Simulated assay, not measured.
Amino acid sequence: MKLTKLLTTAALALGLATGAMAQDKLKVGFVYVGPVGDGGWTYEHDKGRLAVEAEFGDKVETVFVESVPEGPDAERVMTQMALDGAKLIFTTSFGFMDPTINVAAKFPDVKFEHATGYKRVDNVSTYSARFYEGRAIQGHIAGKMTETNIIGYIGSYPIPEVIRGINSAFIHARKVNPDVQFKIVWAYTWFDPAKEADAAKVLIEQGADVILQHTDSTAPLAAAAEAGNIIGFGQASDMGEYADGPRVSSIIDNWAPYYIARTRAVLDGTWTSTDTWDGIGPGMVGIGEITDKVPADVKAEALAMKDAIAKGEYHPFTGPLNKQDGSVWLADGEVADDGTLLGMDFYVEGLEGTIPN
Score class of each variant (00 low, 15 high):
281 G>I: 01
343 G>T: 14
36 V>A: 11
302 A>H: 04
54 A>L: 09
238 D>Y: 13
27 K>R: 15
146 T>F: 04
337 D>Q: 08
136 A>S: 14
317 F>V: 07
50 L>G: 08
12 L>A: 15
237 S>Q: 07
228 G>E: 06
224 A>I: 02
210 V>I: 15
333 G>T: 04
217 S>H: 01
343 G>E: 12
34 G>F: 02
271 W>C: 01
284 M>E: 12
314 Y>E: 12
344 M>P: 12
228 G>A: 03
236 A>H: 15
228 G>W: 01
287 I>A: 09
278 D>N: 13
92 T>I: 06
18 T>Q: 12
141 I>M: 14
89 I>R: 01
48 G>Y: 10
71 G>T: 01
278 D>F: 10
126 T>H: 00
116 T>Q: 09
258 Y>Q: 10
175 K>M: 13
213 Q>M: 12
10 A>D: 03
30 F>I: 07
304 A>D: 13
106 K>A: 15
30 F>D: 03
298 V>Y: 00
192 D>T: 03
169 A>P: 08
344 M>K: 03
268 D>C: 03
225 A>G: 11
139 G>V: 10
207 G>A: 10
152 G>M: 02
292 D>Q: 12
304 A>H: 08
241 E>H: 10
271 W>Q: 06
192 D>W: 03
217 S>V: 07
190 W>V: 08
289 E>G: 09
340 T>I: 13
254 N>H: 11
289 E>C: 07
343 G>D: 13
80 Q>N: 15
173 A>C: 11
320 P>M: 07
348 V>E: 06
97 M>V: 13
138 Q>F: 06
31 V>N: 05
42 T>E: 08
102 N>L: 09
293 K>W: 07
117 G>T: 06
102 N>E: 13
171 I>S: 02
272 T>E: 15
93 S>T: 13
55 E>T: 14
325 D>A: 10
236 A>I: 11
82 A>F: 06
336 A>I: 07
247 R>H: 10
225 A>D: 09
258 Y>W: 13
199 A>S: 15
167 N>G: 11
323 K>D: 03
152 G>D: 01
323 K>L: 14
138 Q>W: 09
256 A>K: 12
242 Y>R: 09
192 D>E: 13
71 G>Y: 04
59 K>N: 14
24 D>S: 14
330 L>E: 01
259 Y>M: 10
43 Y>K: 06
128 S>R: 13
167 N>D: 13
28 V>L: 05
357 N>W: 07
284 M>T: 12
25 K>C: 10
217 S>R: 04
226 E>Q: 11
277 W>P: 03
30 F>K: 01
197 A>Q: 11
329 W>D: 04
349 E>T: 03
35 P>N: 10
140 H>P: 00
249 S>I: 11
56 F>E: 13
302 A>E: 00
253 D>R: 14
266 V>W: 00
44 E>G: 02
38 D>K: 00
147 E>T: 15
194 A>D: 15
52 V>M: 09
125 S>K: 02
232 G>P: 00
14 L>P: 00
265 A>K: 05
117 G>R: 01
96 F>L: 08
20 A>T: 14
36 V>G: 04
